[in-house]
Design a protein around this nucleic acid. Structure first.
Lengths: 123, 123
DNA sequence: ATATATGCAAATAGTTTGCAAGGAG
DNA sequence: CTCCTTGCAAACTATTTGCATATAT
């Protein structure tokens, strides 16, 4: 059974309280302010656990892994200059994907679109 | 100036001759059959150089980096079970992305959609 | 009580870098 | 002949794992 610990709770709160999309290292830093003795292994382990449990979402964009408090399906736009990640919902009906993959026999379960370009500050 | 070496040529041929999407380690293995003495640093360096030069394309999907002989814009479907990568073209007009990102002031330069599900063999 | 979770340190995977020797132009 | 490229080994980064101890249930 999944236990409630102060570390796990603090890690979840660190992600849920973020309006950006923190990396594991950033979550570690934020949690350390509340629980100075926390180990980074605990943070990594719990980010994985929480993502598996569907409480947070793990997004890999480019070479970095980031965590998102939003668990509903949505897409992301990445700034090529500063790396900033912006949430966006790209309207893409599943039928369009199914049609595109029809001949390959691929069964579509989900999708994620990454848009790249320049954010408002960098353009 | 970018020089023509037998290593670089073999690395390019290894990717261009692939119908799958090899990882750096797979390219290394393939090149070693032709040039047994090649170092993995040479492979990594050249995959980067070739990708920068637009001769091949680097794709990061999930936790693995793979190389694609196709340099034209297209999308990918990843099998959740076996990890197989299938090329696919998802019809997504740039105007749709621009409209979705209008309010954030993000300037769209490109996009890539990752579809996940099960390939024909795994479903 | 008992099994899960933590903190630490060491291990691992994938990739990058420094450097002397080699080879392309 | 110059300077880019190679091969080797060491360095590095991000993440994972082993293990004894602590703690939630």
């Amino acid at each position: 059974m999944i236990r409630q610990t102060k570390q796990r709770q603090a890690i979840l709160e660190a992600v849920e309280g973020s309006h950006d999309h923190p990396t594991a290292a950033q979550v570690y830093d934020r949690v350390r302010r509340v629980l100075p003795g926390v180990g980074f292994a605990t943070v990594y382990r719990n980010l994985g656990t929480l993502a598996e449990g569907g409480m947070i979402r793990e997004i890999r964009v480019g070479e970095v892994t980031q965590y998102d408090r939003r668990t509903d399906r949505h897409d992301h736009a990445v700034c090529r200059r500063c790396g900033k990640l912006v949430d966006v919902m790209v309207p893409l009906p599943i039928e369009v994907l199914q049609a595109a993959l029809e001949q390959s026999g691929f069964q579509v379960a989900g999708h994620h679109t990454e848009v790249f370009g320049l954010c408002s500050e960098c353009r």
